[in-house]
Amino acid sequence: MSTRTHLILILMTVFFFWVLLRGMKKSRLSTDIAVLWVGFLFLLVVLSIFPQFSALMAEIMGIKTVINAVFLVIIFLLICMVFFLCLQVSVLNERVKNLVQEISLAETRTSHSEDKTAE
């Protein structure tokens, strides 16, 4: 990896970290998810600051160009992230559905008991 690549990676990380902090400050991002991203950024920093580390990693993975190994790791982490989000969305969907059902049933109950008292 050339020095320029390192620089770009570092700049990206710094910028993203700033975006992350801003999101948290504006209450648009929960800490639970922010810590995941911080872990992700931490790895990016390690990859960009220590070229020996990424070179070693590429060696172990059997990839000739170091940058390709870096890409592969980043892509894998992104897939993990998207999957995690899918899980969260499924859970949220289920919760919203259950809430709608419970509230609707509860409203039916109250309207029934009102009918009875009216009689």
Binding site: K97, V100, Q101, I103, S104, L105, E107, T108
Partner: peptide, 9 residues
Amino acid sequence: NHVDLLMNL
């Protein structure tokens, strides 16, 4: 006898 759902599920 019916239940009205609040949202379309």
